[in-house]
Design a binder for these strands. Structure first.
Length: 558
DNA sequence: ACTGTGTGCGCG
DNA sequence: AAAGCGCGCACACAGT
């Protein structure tokens, strides 16, 4: 059964519906503070909570030590259905825009910064549910997915992801500020106030200035550095790391070192620590489906870009462990499965997929296999990738055909879909107008070249969309299955038992009591098998994981 | 003093 | 336009 929650003048209304969306008893009226208790009473394996927005309803439940088994996040589902080709003819797809189409109302659960304190008024009085009737919306969504089992699966997975994201925000990633601070002091020097260059950075800046014979050089200014490099006769077009690495000159080494340390300071230095780490936890806010392809994004603290170098500060609590799991070569495996390419799937069966590609004879080295595979999925046309892709075409025609078709559809301006039906956006009107314009009498060869270049660029996007998006679906299924397994064995408050604390596309971290860590490792592996079955049924593809039980995140290296 | 854009780099 | 996708963030710099 479903219980649809809505806010009504000062209270909450819970409307019971059957799985078909018809009434299943009288709506129940309760006072908002009673909600966590009500949810605790009513939550059960067959129950799904339907709400407009997980981020608005669930934190209070978590704060009260509760949790739910399953939910429907109407806002996330709406967004998928608005775009989805498989729901194109539905009433929902054609309905006028309303409050559910708007982005999630801003609601900082994490400590607000000084500036945000003044914004309290913005969300304190935010209108409950706007003009959206969640019961009607839920029914419209049921109708929209009635013809597509895949889409139903996607909505389920997305909603499960919303629960995971809320729980991870609630729990936070264990973060030892003292370890982080020690690392900063060792590499940058003693802590300095914001705006002051730390000692080590100042020393390196002096060396750079001396070797470029420019006493006033500001090493933080790319334009300044570029001018100085040119002045000493270095033919560079930018100050990017990859370009500098190619050059022989005494300034390069200290300059690159400066950039490395400056990056650490600005991205994950003391300011970051002050802003994001509270009571031994880093609380990044995950944005489910925040990337066009369906991948998650993170808002604040750059959680998805957590540098390898500071993962040593992620340390399990006393008596607890981190279980770190990473799916190996996820995207090529997903591509093999979704295209039904048996040869590519068997290249990855029980081993490193790139090694398997070498064993197939398509290329000579693992590095070549990797470059070629990435080239195929990203649309490389030049360099080593571009040269090697044709060899993959011969070895794995089905897989390569799938990405090639996706690219050609994109070049024509058509949408493409992931395995479960998440549908890519189409280019803006100006894209089509420019194309039309270029091929009229007014069109010049330069216009045509520009239009074709844009078309190829969009084709690279759609080519990658189908693979990246389907891999994101696998990851959702993986996490969703793992979460179910954790909930059923540890039904209490999230942080009382093993719980997810971190996620990056193909990698998860679970914080678990020591005595349960091995059990968790097994569950993670089984969840990966579940995910493969859910998406690809019996197709013989495997998703090997590297799983490590460690004290510090940095100890887990595949 | 604020806002928008470009640059550069971290992650997958 | 780093060959080749998807992001977020901080800073410099320019425009207002």
């Amino acid at each position: 059964m479903h219980l649809v929650l809505s806010r009504v003048d000062g209270g909450v209304l819970a409307t019971p519906l059957t799985d078909a969306g018809t009434a299943d008893g009288e709506p129940i009226r309760l006072d908002e503070p009673r909600l966590p208790a009500f949810i605790a009473e009513r939550d059960a394996p067959g129950v799904r909570w339907v709400w407009d927005d997980t981020a608005r309803w669930y934190p209070a439940v978590l704060a009260a030590g509760g949790r739910v088994g399953r939910c429907v996040d109407l806002r996330l589902c709406r967004r998928i259905l608005r775009q989805a080709l498989a729901a194109r003819g539905s009433a929902l797809a054609a309905a006028p825009k309303d409050a559910l189409d708007a982005p999630v109302p801003e609601q900082r659960v994490v400590r607000p910064t000084q500036a945000q304190l003044f914004d309290d008024a913005l969300f304190a009085g935010s209108a409950p549910d706007g003009d959206v009737d969640p019961v009607a919306e839920f029914r419209a969504q049921l109708d929209a997915v009635s013809g597509s089992g895949a889409l139903r699966l996607l909505l389920t997975a997305e909603s499960a992801g919303a629960l995971v994201a809320a729980e991870m925000l609630h729990a936070g990633l264990p973060w030892r500020a003292d370890v982080h601070e020690r690392l900063l002091e060792e590499t940058l020097g003693p802590r300095v106030p914001y705006g002051v260059r730390p000692r080590r950075l100042e020393e390196i800046a002096a060396v750079v200035r001396e070797r470029l014979d420019d006493p006033t050089l500001n090493p933080d200014s790319p334009a300044d550095v570029l001018r100085a490099l040119r002045r000493v006769g270095l033919m560079v077009t930018s100050t990017r790391k990859w370009e500098l690495q190619e050059i022989e000159h005494p300034v390069i080494e200290p300059l690159l070192e400066y950039k490395r340390l400056a990056r650490l300071l600005t991205a994950n230095g003391w300011t970051w620590l002050d802003e994001w780490v509270r009571d031994g936890r880093f609380h990044p806010k995950y944005v489910v489906g925040g990337v066009v392809t369906g991948r998650w994004a993170a808002d604040g603290g750059g959680a998805m870009q957590l540098p390898k170098g500071i993962r040593g500060a992620v340390i399990a609590d006393q008596g607890w462990k981190l279980v770190v799991a990473d799916a190996a070569q996820l995207e090529p495996r997903v591509l093999a499965a979704m295209s039904g390419d048996q040869a590519m799937a068997s290249a990855g069966d029980g081993r490193d997929l790139y090694d398997g590609v070498v064993a197939s004879g398509a290329v000579e080295t693992r590095q070549q296999a990797k470059v070629a595979m990435l080239g195929a999925m990203y649309g490389a046309t030049q360099g080593e990738g571009g040269r090697l892709v044709p060899r993959l075409v011969r070895a794995f025609p089905r897989a390569l055909d799938l990405v090639e078709r996706a690219a050609r559809a994109g070049e024509r301006g058509e949408p493409v879909t992931t395995l479960l039906g998440r549908t890519s956006p189409v280019p803006e009107d100006s894209w089509f107008e420019a194309r039309k314009q270029a091929y009229t009498v007014e069109g010049t060869p330069a216009m045509q070249r520009a239009v074709e270049s844009r078309a190829r660029s969009w084709g690279r996007f759609t080519r990658n969309f189908v693979v990246q998006g389907t891999a994101a679906e696998w990851a959702l299924a993986w996490m969703g299955s793992l979460r179910s397994r954790l909930v059923s064995r540890f039904p209490g408050a999230v942080t009382d038992g093993p719980h997810l604390v971190f996620f990056v596309h193909d990698e998860i971290v679970v914080h678990a009591p020591e005595e349960h860590a091995e059990w968790v490792a097994v569950q993670i592996r089984q969840a990966a098998v579940d995910a493969g079955r859910l998406l690809f049924q019996d197709f013989p593809v495997t998703f090997p994981l590297s799983v490590a039980v460690v004290d510090a995140y940095s100890e887990a290296k595949d």
